[in-house]
Measured scan of single mutants.
Amino acid sequence: MAAGGDHGSPDSYRSPLASRYASPEMCFVFSDRYKFRTWRQLWLWLAEAEQTLGLPITDEQIQEMKSNLENIDFKMAAEEEKRLRHDVMAHVHTFGHCCPKAAGIIHLGATSCYVGDNTDLIILRNALDLLLPKLARVISRLADFAKERASLPTLGFTHFQPAQLTTVGKRCCLWIQDLCMDLQNLKRVRDDLRFRGVKGTTGTQASFLQLFEGDDHKVEQLDKMVTEKAGFKRAFIITGQTYTRKVDIEVLSVLASLGASVHKICTDIRLLANLKEMEEPFEKQQIGSSAMPYKRNPMRSERCCSLARHLMTLVMDPLQTASVQWFERTLDDSANRRICLAEAFLTADTILNTLQNISEGLVVYPKVIERRIRQELPFMATENIIMAMVKAGGSRQDCHEKIRVLSQQAASVVKQEGGDNDLIERIQVDAYFSPIHSQLDHLLDPSSFTGRASQQVQRFLEEEVYPLLKPYESVMKVKAELCL
């Protein structure tokens, strides 16, 4: 049975990233139509530049190519590739079939990587351009969430054990800070992308030097003109047959890092959902379990974690691919890159769409948070109580021993009897502590235990987050809708 299948058929496997999760716009960027249309555009740009620099290419040939950029006979191309065992030459023939007058000058002087690699770089750039505003929107939604809850005390956790208090907004800023680093890295790697350009079979530009009869300047002009037509500021000066596969490492490393950030955020949300302090959106008709109707599973956060793990592992592909590119190139890269580049971007696209949807509907339960604080705060307040007693004339050592005994009794009630923490009640009825009984409410005010959390939130948002989001103001209103 021949390899390949009808990918629109229910009898043929289709990647869930495309069929179930990723956005239509990201799927289109990695589609065959987008790819092969870009090949034709690159052939047109090459012909236009070659004509401008004096090669015998007519206006009629150029116009014929322009008129057929979208006229792609995919069936013919597939048949040609089956016959020739070469995808680029299959599309040269297919393009030439609908451009008979231009057929002889299509791909003039070029090698397969002229269309293959340059198209990949265009796709990487455009895919990054799709991700950047999506990530900015996630940051914006979380920034709104953090600002609104900047002063809401909550129990902090280290080692997932109760620690000092923080605020809900401050905790959210930990998430935002990681995503801001990801946004900066995505922008950097996007701006650092260079075009492969017009380089020939081993990167020496020998074929173009021959076409222009040894004119170095025209060869350099050709490279520059096509690079500018493709919208790049610069091209690699040095290439082998391909652009260095280190570029793929750079791009997928940034995406993998984004995956790590999203995994951490969504894990926190899942843990908070278990504590009943916070939940992701839950639709009115949504079913959490087929057997347990009360369940409210954090399905979206779980999906993000599941896909983020996949995204983090994909960076190993370009690392290994770059390491086995012998001399000017081997074909070890080809099949692998067809999979890992598309999957990385479709996965990143999915987790950003999902995280935006989550961040637009996060639900906080202040009463649950308050109750958990009441359970733990008495123990945390013991040092403040000791200091207040010393100020009232008591002995630190005597007070410490009193607190120690009462704390152990209260802990026994919590752990052995399943009761509430009654340390404060014990202190309130103990005559030894009568000098500070009137101060206990103040000493137990949760806001006095959150330090500068709310001020940190305000400063972080104003100095770091809002300036970073400013270039994306025009796209901030787009909502994230999930079908599944």
Results as ranks from 00 to 15, higher is better:
2 A>P: 10
4 G>M: 14
4 G>R: 13
10 P>G: 11
11 D>C: 12
14 R>Y: 15
18 A>Y: 10
19 S>H: 15
22 A>G: 10
26 M>E: 00
27 C>E: 15
27 C>D: 15
33 R>I: 08
42 L>W: 02
43 W>Q: 06
55 L>F: 02
59 D>Q: 09
64 E>C: 12
69 L>K: 08
80 E>K: 08
95 F>P: 00
100 P>Q: 10
102 A>G: 08
125 R>V: 08
125 R>M: 11
127 A>D: 00
131 L>K: 06
133 P>N: 11
133 P>R: 15
136 A>R: 13
144 D>F: 15
147 K>A: 12
156 G>Y: 00
157 F>C: 02
162 P>I: 07
164 Q>P: 02
166 T>K: 05
173 C>P: 00
173 C>D: 05
173 C>F: 05
174 L>S: 11
179 L>S: 05
189 V>N: 11
189 V>A: 11
197 G>V: 02
199 K>T: 06
201 T>D: 01
202 T>M: 07
213 E>Q: 15
217 H>E: 10
219 V>P: 02
222 L>E: 00
225 M>Y: 15
232 F>S: 04
235 A>P: 14
238 I>L: 04
242 T>D: 06
244 T>G: 15
246 K>W: 01
253 S>R: 06
253 S>K: 02
258 L>Y: 15
258 L>E: 05
262 V>C: 14
267 T>L: 11
267 T>C: 08
268 D>N: 11
275 L>P: 04
277 E>A: 04
278 M>E: 05
282 F>N: 12
282 F>D: 06
285 Q>H: 09
286 Q>P: 02
286 Q>K: 01
296 R>H: 03
304 C>E: 06
315 V>F: 12
316 M>H: 12
316 M>Q: 12
328 E>T: 03
338 R>S: 00
341 L>P: 06
342 A>M: 05
343 E>D: 15
343 E>L: 01
346 L>I: 14
346 L>D: 00
349 D>R: 03
357 N>G: 10
362 L>I: 12
362 L>A: 08
367 K>Y: 06
370 E>N: 14
370 E>S: 09
378 P>A: 04
379 F>C: 03
385 I>H: 05
385 I>N: 03
392 A>S: 09
393 G>K: 04
394 G>T: 05
396 R>S: 04
397 Q>L: 07
400 H>L: 03
403 I>K: 06
405 V>D: 12
409 Q>H: 10
409 Q>R: 10
410 A>P: 06
412 S>C: 11
416 Q>C: 09
418 G>F: 05
421 N>D: 03
427 I>A: 04
435 P>M: 05
437 H>E: 06
447 S>T: 13
449 F>V: 04
461 L>Y: 03
466 Y>V: 12
479 K>H: 14
484 L>R: 15
